[in-house]
């Protein structure tokens, strides 16, 4: 497809011109929407929330792309917006939730089983439950490394943190998940 030939710098330049703004934005959506959707979905879990966050993310991109300075790669800037939007939604939901944290983990299993847009196996449900016990930042780091296979350098740029602390966080998160799964599988 044509958009694959346009690099991010050209895309930003194209967006800055009023005549080609919509065209540039459509190219950007085609290029990033799926990757962003799956990144968001792993954080917020339901399709409805992921759809809301994806729309908010693209609204923010639309509003701010012409002032994008290029100090970081475009995709890391976009990922950062998506991550922040996802966390904002989770915060809002937590504020309004009457469930304690333990209740949330147990609720997740029934939520996933009744979700028409979840087709995972039993072990995938347990994995999601294990991930949900992690602190938000560890959860995001784990998802980006384990599912998306992003490099530590890329994750560090998106989350604006050091590679060293990321490695430590990922290792810690993976250890906790292993322990959770071991415990769950033994008791089943």
């Amino acid at each position: 497809m044509a958009y694959q030939k346009i690099n991010d710098i050209e895309l930003v330049e194209l967006f800055k011109s009023k005549d080609s703004q919509q065209k540039a934005f459509k190219i950007l959506m085609q290029k990033y929407k799926e990757r962003l959707y799956w990144h968001i979905r792993k954080i917020v879990l339901t399709h409805e929330d992921a759809d809301d966050v994806l729309q908010n993310t693209f609204v923010k991109i639309w509003q701010n792309l012409d002032s994008f300075q290029g100090n970081s790669a475009l995709y890391t800037w976009i990922y950062r917006i998506a991550t922040n939007e996802s966390l904002t939604l989770l915060k809002k939901k937590k504020k309004n939730s009457a469930y304690p944290i333990d209740g949330e983990v147990n609720k997740l299993e029934s939520q996933l089983k009744s979700d028409p847009y979840f087709e995972g196996t039993e072990i995938q449900i347990q994995l999601q439950k294990a991930i949900s016990t992690l602190p938000e930042k560890q959860k995001i780091i784990f998802n980006m490394k384990y599912f998306d296979d992003l490099k530590y350098g890329e994750i560090a740029e998106i989350l604006e943190t050091s590679v060293g602390s990321l490695k430590a966080s990922y290792h810690h998160a993976a250890k906790k998940i292993e322990a959770y799964l071991k415990n769950t599988l033994v008791n089943k």
Partner: peptide
């Protein structure tokens, strides 16, 4: 070991989207 095994057997998350979701998104 468990995480490696899960990834080998289930490389994705199990999440899906409604039909044509991405086609109509733009």
């Amino acid at each position: 070991n468990i995480l490696n095994q899960i990834k080998k057997e289930n490389p994705d998350t199990g999440f899906s989207v409604p039909d044509h979701y991405f086609d109509s998104f733009d």
